[in-house]
Simulated assay, not measured.
Amino acid sequence: MVTSGADPLEAERVELGPPEEVGLPTGGVAQRLGVSPTTVRSWERRYGIGPAHREAGHHRRWSPQDIAVLEAMCRLTARGVPPGEAARAALAERGVGQAPERPKAEPGGRPGGSRALRVGAVRPECRGLARAAVRLDAPEVVRILGQAVEALGAVEAWTEVMMPALRAVGRKWAADGEQYVEVEHLLSWHVSTALRGVAVGPARSRSGPPVPPDRPVPPVLLAAVPGEQHTLPLEATAAALAERGLPFRMLGAAVPPRALLDAVRRIGPGAVMLWSQDRRGADHELVARVCGCAWGQRGSRGAPVVLAVGPGWARGATPAGTESPRTLAAAVDLLEQAVTR
């Protein structure tokens, strides 16, 4: 996003340049805002958000006032406001007036062209998150994620805001090759940061009965199967457990079998959640070994409830002795029941 003060070096360049060079070209404006030049041109063509002053035969030059209108447009669209409404509000906010009528866009056309993410029918927060991620607008991504977690809680924020945006980026990446890796990496990092902020912060109980104070509650052990690098669902689970005041131990990505089994015996968890994104990593034999783990003295030995979670565990082929919930909400409920029974 553009900052309020002009860059000193840029200001000096503008002052020393000839009259026709005053202001920034479209490419420079797009770079400052974190959008593509195509998006800027599209907004000008469709919604009348363009330089207030233009001279025939000269390239477009954007003044600070013009850039402020574009900045407002970016901020509003990132918050889920439809582009047409955002344009009218941005122009009105700067005292420009209403956008002039423009020729209708070609059928199926969207502001930003092919850079737009197709997120489908989702909450406005998710649509705004996807737009901010494509612009690499980290401050806006942080703001949206923070408000979503605070207002909705970890489970709903993950299910209705974070996950649909991540999936849309993944589809775009798969279709366009390496072009959208930077978007996926930025969004994933900030999603992880938001979830970890809840998981390691002060416990907040949003739902479920209070944890009985008269006995210790065994922790939940969270781990990805060997070779599995995707951990955001585990981090969402950790955040949801923290909101309910339930203890957990996060082992994270690609935990080797020996390390996993050793951790189960040492910790004595009330429940173990094993995440698998890819069917190639869904090791049923390993799950059976975890189910067979026990600890404690004879006569009072314990064993964990085991959840095999994720698309890697094929439907109809659930490992024996395990639970396989299909949603984060269901998984968290089962984990809570396992450690508070």
Rank of each mutant, 00 (worst) to 15 (best):
Glu160Met: 10
Glu160Lys: 08
Val161Met: 09
Met162Pro: 01
Met162Ser: 11
Pro164Glu: 03
Ala165Lys: 03
Leu166Gln: 15
Leu166Lys: 04
Leu166Trp: 01
Ala168Tyr: 00
Ala168Gln: 00
Val169Glu: 02
Val169Asp: 00
Val169Ile: 13
Val169Leu: 07
Gly170Leu: 11
Gly170Tyr: 00
Arg171Asn: 10
Arg171Cys: 00
Ala174Pro: 00
Ala174Arg: 15
Ala174Ser: 12
Asp176Tyr: 11
Glu178Thr: 13
Glu178Pro: 10
Gln179Asp: 11
Tyr180Cys: 04
Tyr180Asp: 14
Val181Asn: 02
Val181Cys: 04
Val183Lys: 01
Val183Cys: 07
Leu186Asp: 03
Leu186Lys: 04
Ser188Ile: 02
Ser188Thr: 15
Ser188Tyr: 03
Trp189Met: 10
Trp189Leu: 13
His190Thr: 04
His190Ile: 00
Val191Arg: 02
Thr193Asn: 07
Leu195Met: 15
Leu195Ser: 07
Arg196Phe: 11
Val198Tyr: 00
Ala199Trp: 06
Pro202Leu: 08
Ala203Glu: 12
Ala203Pro: 10
Arg204Met: 05
Arg204Asp: 05
Ser205Tyr: 07
Ser205Ile: 09
Arg206Thr: 15
Arg206Leu: 14
Arg206Lys: 08
Ser207Met: 03
Gly208Tyr: 06
Gly208Ser: 08
Pro209Ser: 14
Pro210Glu: 13
Pro210Ser: 07
Val211Ser: 12
Val211Pro: 03
Pro212His: 06
Asp214Met: 05
Asp214Arg: 12
Asp214Asn: 11
Asp214Phe: 07
Asp214Tyr: 09
Arg215Ala: 15
Pro216Val: 14
Pro216Met: 12
Pro218Val: 10
Pro219Phe: 02
Pro219Asn: 08
Leu222Trp: 05
Leu222Val: 11
Ala223Trp: 02
Val225Tyr: 01
Val225Met: 15
Pro226Gly: 06
Pro226Glu: 06
Gly227Asn: 04
Glu228Met: 08
